[in-house]
Design a protein around this nucleic acid. Structure first.
Length: 563
RNA sequence: UGGGGCGUAGCCAAGUGGCCUAAGGCACCGGUUUUUGGUAUCGGCAUUCGGAGGUUCGAAUCCUCCCGCCCCAGCCA
């Protein structure tokens, strides 16, 4: 009802594609809007795909139309069932539904084959016997026109016969090809008699060995769109040059509808890479543990990292849609992740690098159950009890023997607050032979129970802690950018830009007991440290947490500035 | 040097001839609040829209030229 309402109806935020589509809705050009997300199942989906998914499914939802999930499975040598399954899981995880069964370009192989024959019969395509190298030579260059293949004027009947024999498996890979007869002198290279069918003796994940000839992308995509009655075929900029070809097929074939292709810029993100080829290489060469390594920009990696799908959808909305190549800072994604997690992650206390502390004046053997808020941003999250006892663990970073002026955490003689517990003052520092601090002695003020001083005295810092007697031991993995360079590979070998410190594994971390009940799908904030999630490989006996992202850290910023 | 695109702050991005001495977000800087140096909140951050001319009473928006960046010569998608 409000003007800024999202959901049904014309949304407040728009872009040039939505403008076009809404204009088509207004003019009644189509019965309904139909878009499609067309991944090739040759790898895992990454956040760049999420941009396209959000656009296609988003527009469909906003206009009351629908969006198909269609696998562009025309190249069996690179496609696998594993990828088909993973892609569906990832699209669902993002929160989108494609209703009926997924579509496949391979569902149209029969029709496409008939259309190839149709083109030949009309004298608009022919079977060519040029080798790949010869074809390249005949194609000309960017500045010189190509030459007609000597087989270009092969009689229709001969081409038809050859095509039938190609289909029957009489020839080896690469022996023959069918080409659209367009214009070898066209300034647009895509129009220089593009190949529309090639021989590939390979098992297709869906059609098995039913075919040994496969349509190319150009011959399959637009026609598949037309068969599915797609109204708006949204793709990335590199296909802009293919649009005349897309239209040529749709104009020269008896297709059931005329979809419109519109191109937009793909996403580029700093400190990572969004190229399936390179991601595949990182996996194959073992630079990461797999497609779902938490450092990967894949949706499965981000899921394992603990990034909520809502944050990704929000991010895709914030970056916008247009035609200019851009490089989005990872900080933009980080902000979306923090904003989402801040609202829904429960808070817990965990000490990553424990420093033992003994509260000298606290009775030995006594334990108190203190009240702690689960999420200050969400009252419905309720409260929990946290045990407190004489021996505790504090974060090593929260103590400095000789603190600089701006450090206001624990130091000798200084009083700080232990969150939800008491004010404590450091009375003694115990070091080992090497001078390393191994233990702290503190005194607590019983009057400050819960964290407030009745006399109104203030304290500069509030620290998180875990009672030694009740602590759960865990492993925690700290993740950072996969690449240290903003634009990996920009100046040389991309592997040189890998961040050698993209993951740090810490063992012997101490967690508060409430962390015993945790799920791999529920984000948790370790107070003052960041957002974490139980790793899918974790076990109750040996819990493993992945750090999704740190909290904003102004102290770290101050330290950096101070040198 | 052929064809197709793109150029608004450090980054993303609205804007399509007058309400633009240019939204919003991220980042950054500073204040307030705070039992997370978190959150929230307030303020600052382009007299200028790749550059130069021109049209116009008036231009980021129209015209001309120039400059820069991206994509295309797979039987990949």
């Amino acid at each position: 009802m409000s003007e800024t309402d999202s959901g049904e109806g014309n949304p407040a935020s728009s872009d040039f594609i939505r403008d076009i589509i809404w204009a088509d809705v207004a003019s009644g050009k189509h019965a309904g809007i139909v878009t499609r997300f067309p991944p090739e199942p040759n790898g895992y989906l990454h956040i760049g795909h999420a941009k396209s998914i959000c656009l296609n499914f988003g527009v469909a939802a906003e206009t009351g139309g629908r969006c198909h999930l269609r696998f562009d499975d025309t190249n069996p040598v690179r496609e696998e069932q594993e990828f088909i399954d993973a892609i569906q899981e990832d699209v669902r995880w993002l929160g989108f539904e494609w209703g009926t069964d997924a579509y496949h370009a391979s569902d149209n192989f029969d029709q496409l084959y008939q259309w190839a024959k149709h083109l030949i019969s009309e004298g608009k395509a022919y079977v060519d016997g040029l080798s790949a190298e010869e074809m390249r030579a005949y194609r000309g260059t960017l500045t010189e026109p190509g030459k007609n293949s000597p087989h270009r004027d092969r009689p229709v009947a001969e081409s038809l016969d050859l095509l039938a024999r190609m289909r029957a498996g009489e020839f080896e890979d690469g022996a023959l090809v069918v080409r659209a007869k367009i214009d070898m002198a066209a300034p647009n290279m895509n129009l220089r008699d593009p190949v529309i069918y090639r021989i590939v003796h390979a098992i297709h994940p869906r059609t098995g060995d039913a075919w040994c000839i496969y349509p190319t992308y150009d011959f399959a995509h637009g026609q598949s769109d037309a068969i599915e009655n797609i109204t708006h075929s949204l793709c990335t900029l590199e296909f802009e040059d293919h649009r005349p070809l897309y239209e040529w097929f749709v104009d020269n074939l008896p297709v059931p509808s005329h979809p419109r292709q519109i191109e937009f810029a793909r996403l580029n993100l700093t400190h990572t890479v969004l190229s399936k080829r390179i991601l595949m290489r990182l996996v194959d060469e073992g630079h990461v543990s797999g497609w779902d390594d938490p450092r990967m920009p894949t949706l499965s990696g981000m899921r394992r990292r603990g990034i909520p799908p809502e944050a990704i959808v929000d991010f895709c909305g914030r970056i916008g849609i247009n035609k200019s190549n851009s490089m989005v800072e990872m900080a933009m994604l980080d902000a979306c992740v923090r904003e989402d997690l801040n609202k829904r992650a429960v808070r817990r206390m965990a000490v990553l690098r424990p420093l033992k502390v003994v509260i000298e004046n606290y009775p030995d053997g006594q334990t108190e159950e203190l009240d702690a808020v689960n999420n200050p941003e969400d009252e419905t999250a309720g409260m929990r009890k946290v045990p407190f006892s004489r021996e505790l663990y504090l974060e090593r970073d929260d103590f400095m023997e000789d603190p600089p002026k701006k450090f206001f955490r624990l130091a000798p003689g200084r009083e700080v607050r232990l969150r939800y517990a008491y004010f404590v003052t450091c009375t003694q520092v115990i070091t080992d032979a090497a001078g390393e601090v191994v233990e702290l002695r503190c005194r607590y003020d019983p009057a400050t129970k819960g964290g407030n001083a009745p006399d109104g005295r203030k304290v500069r810092a509030t620290l998180h802690w875990v009672a030694a007697s009740h602590a759960i031991d865990a492993e925690v993995r700290l993740y950072d950018h996969l690449f240290k360079a903003e634009e990996p590979g920009k100046s040389g070998d991309i592997l040189e830009d890998l961040n050698p410190n993209s993951v740090e594994v810490i063992t012997g971390c101490k967690l508060e007991p409430a962390l015993e009940q945790c799920e791999t799908s529920k984000a948790v904030q370790f107070e003052r440290l960041g957002y974490f999630i139980l790793d899918k490989g974790s076990t109750p006996a040996e819990p493993v947490f992945n750090r999704t992202i740190t909290l904003r850290d102004t102290w770290a910023k101050v330290q950096k500035k101070g040198g």
